[in-house]
Design a protein around this nucleic acid. Structure first.
Lengths: 219, 219, 219, 219
DNA sequence: CATGAATGAGATTTCATTCAT
DNA sequence: AATGAATGAAATCTCATTCAT
């Protein structure tokens, strides 16, 4: 039984090894340009071994995303349901959750933002895209509800809740992608977290009415 | 002489025809997935004709971007040097210039944001990237100077000028890309311009100190 | 216009060249074992050229068959409707039509007889098989009608018409395939046609009642 | 000693298990398409276990055939040497022996008829084919002798003995293969045996002179 | 000039076979 | 003895680019 367990553990490790390599390669090359051989070399395995673990390139690509996105959904849900946090605190926590997730897996962000384009994806990954869409919608809905509450309480400007969501979400994504582009040109010390924090500060300043913020529960 | 001129005009038109088609196809499929045949069909020309006008695929891709980006630089420069505009008005005009440019040519934005990534590009397009970088830097420097002025005048929060540039630039890009992603999922009426305007409103609210704004010249 | 026509003619010739090569290769190796490279070499063309003319291996395989089978249907139909032939004469003519067809294209016979097996076939070739089935049924139905008539006229034994069809059809196919196997072992002078004729003689002797044959029209 | 015997018995059973599975899979997929994994799954064993019992795929394929064909040779020999049977009775018995053999193992028939083709086969399987040829020739020679006797006795038409053999053999094979094709299209009740019997009836009617048949011994 | 056709080079995918346990 | 995992080698298919007309 010890043997069987070790086998399973080894298999999982190998899978992880492939996933990690694939993230690297997909991040640097994109879905279409990354070759399975690239991934195999990065993972220090044979090409055929990759295929022993994942049915094809798309399927491999798929699994990377879902795992991470599900993790993000979990984090956001916990914050969303935490009644001891103020609205503003929740938004800050949302930002941190996104930060943790996308720093850890930038490929996912690229997918959510359809950076690898529709037409290039095959039947299989369409299914994946649908799943990604669904999870993304789940997250955005929670964001929207929080903003809505802020508007109702009068602490945020009276705008449609989805507007705030779009801006927050886009600003975040824009910063991550732009950060990637900048460091691609000129790799240097990482000021990203502080830029992100400042951006959210400014965003919150920008949407607040100035009315006394809620000190109490948000729900 | 009329004939010679017509020849030249026809040649330019043909070139424009190819550029337009190529933009379409690259936008929908990405650099790697778009085939020369796709472009030829879209342009209603033969494959070999494309090669009569552009040395190869990368070179074609390159020209698309530079043309548009140079146009953007021009627009930004005009605003930048227009002394009759207030700082805030300039920022608004910058936004509009970006809007016009990137709505017209979203592929460029993808390139500035390194969405088609480094490793995939061949020697020739590295050169292109360098040119893009240079032009981009030119634009961002002008942005930075304006923000700096605002900070010095005390109308903007005392932060590093590049922080504001990064946030503005990222927010803009994020919105464009996110808009593309959303309409890919659910094509509907286009509220993009108003979302963008609101986002900049909020951004400006967020960075202003509250001190009376400059009514006069910015330079 | 002369040029355009020549182009078309050349294209057709090239297509024919590929078809001919493919028949050869498929006959000797079978669908699964034959490689596109084999066919390309046989046709003295590049691999990619084959793909310029046929979407994929299955599609190529498909076209080979349908062309020939349709030709057989035509031949059989002409005989079938020729009122000046006696029943027995028609059967002889059917045999000759089959002989001409399958000598010319033995791969088809393999397909009709499901020699390349079901499970190995892809979606496209399933569709092909359906078309083959339909055409085959058309032929067999005509055969059946002729036998039926013979039975009704009392010149053939009173058996179910499909029995005769199956036996005639199988005997024919068996001889072709067996001939192929024998000459594979020991290529020698071709006695096939005479063997086939004798086999049909014996078959006809075997099914006739002995009653005076119809001297007149069969329809 | 009980243990050693059990070991041997178990080993033989395992071998049988593999052979049975392999027959199934080869029948349904053909030599080329069938994978060792398919066979392993069908046999409910591991892939590597197959290789513990058979040197490679071809060798496995080989043994399937020889075993059965040898069995057929035995059956035919018994009939052939049974002096109490008339010529016609012997032919009937030959048919039954073939029927039993090929119904039980259709893959063999495919091989005898070179349905899996020459060029695809490796050195080892060439050797196998040679063995198959030899055994087949043995059978056909016995058939030929019987027909020859019939001709000499004047009960069969004066034709070359190999002609009769070819026709009988082909008719039989044609029926088996055609039956397979038909049931692939339209699986239904199995009338095969009766069709086969009728076909042989007709064949015998066709080759007989009409002279009183031999009531006595054929040898 | 414009172009259809041909193709080399390279990517994905499959599978028989080996190997370590 | 039995096996799951790893992989080299080979097959299918794609596409940027060239060439002859």
């Amino acid at each position: 039984m010890g043997i069987k367990e070790r086998r399973i553990r080894e298999k999982e490790m190998r899978q992880q090894q492939i996933v990690t390599a694939a993230k690297q390669v997909f991040l640097h090359k994109g879905l279409k340009s990354a070759t399975i051989e690239d991934i195999a070399i990065e993972a220090e395995l044979g090409v055929a071994t990759i295929y022993a673990y994942f049915k094809n390139k798309d399927e491999l690509y798929a699994s990377l995303n879902l795992i991470t996105l599900e993790y993000l959904v979990d984090q956001v849900e916990i914050v969303y349901h935490n009644d001891s946090l103020s609205i503003e605190q929740k938004i800050i926590k949302f930002k941190d959750a996104m930060y943790n997730t996308f720093r850890f897996d930038p490929v996912l962000l690229r997918n959510i933002f359809r950076v690898e384009l529709e037409e290039t994806l095959t039947a299989l990954s369409r299914e994946l895209l649908e799943q990604i869409n669904q999870l993304t919608r789940k997250i955005l809905t929670m964001f929207a509800n929080i903003f809505d509450e802020g508007v109702k309480q009068g602490i945020f400007l009276p705008r449609h809740k989805m507007l705030f969501v779009d801006i927050m979400w886009s600003t975040f994504a824009g910063l991550v992608i732009w950060e990637g582009a900048k460091t691609a040109i000129n790799p240097k010390k990482d000021f990203f977290k502080s830029s992100l924090d400042e951006a959210f500060d400014i965003f919150l300043r920008g949407i607040k009415t100035g009315k006394a913020t809620d000190k109490g529960k948000s729900k």
